[in-house]
């Protein structure tokens, strides 16, 4: 959690307005989240959490039931009907950064009673949570609107200075 000087003020205001006074001080939401899981091909994304708190207003939109409100999805409400807050709030607390690693697969294979076996990985949780709102609310939706590509990323996508030249295109298989 990276908290800047101005943040506590915004956060405190928000917390008061939203009526989350019961939250302990250390559970204050971060103003900015640095997302650098794909840092090989993309520059880290500095997610302006504070701004999104202001825009969205309802933490439950993104955080399901973990910020103290009941879940919105009727299917989730069967269990999460009151909301539990504090312990697991950040996306990465539930959504694994490497959902398909052998270790993580083991957790679902061995625990046959586990209900949340089909949980999105961290990257997909971010994208699928962000994109739904961005599409509906006119936010940026292009890949490069949020992600700047690194040199390696340009090489991967054959973009930027790695874009195939017309002669290469002519020599292609089609």
């Amino acid at each position: 959690m990276r908290i800047k000087m101005i943040v506590p003020v915004i956060v405190a205001t928000f917390v008061l307005v939203a009526g989350f006074t019961s939250l302990p001080a250390e559970a204050a939401p971060p103003a900015q989240v640095r997302i650098d899981q794909l840092s090989k091909d993309f520059e880290p994304v500095l997610f302006d959490h504070a701004n999104h708190i202001e825009m969205v207003g309802d933490c439950g939109e993104c955080h399901h039931h973990t910020t103290g409100t009941a879940a919105k999805d009727p299917d989730c409400m069967r269990c999460h009907n009151s909301g539990s807050s504090g312990e697991r709030v950040a996306c990465r607390d539930c959504h694994a950064a490497e959902p398909f690693s052998a270790d993580h697969l083991k957790t679902t294979t061995e625990d046959r009673k586990r209900y949340h076996r089909d949980l999105l990985g961290l990257k997909a949780a971010y994208h699928r949570s962000c994109m739904g709102c961005h599409e509906a609310g006119g936010g940026p939706t292009g890949c490069l609107d949020c992600h700047l590509r690194t040199e390696s990323g340009d090489a991967l996508f054959r973009a930027g200075k790695h874009t195939p030249t017309p002669t290469e295109k002519a020599a292609g298989h089609h």
């Binding site: 996508f157 054959r158 290469e168 295109k169 298989h173 089609h174």
Partner: peptide, 27 residues
């Protein structure tokens, strides 16, 4: 139902399998 057609998978396959450069950029 989840696919948005970004073609990242095509790019990743190309890199992983050391395939020749495509005729057009993956974007």
């Amino acid at each position: 139902g989840r696919c948005v057609g970004c073609r990242s998978c095509e790019a990743a396959c190309n890199r992983e399998q050391n395939l020749p450069a495509p005729a057009q950029s993956f974007e």
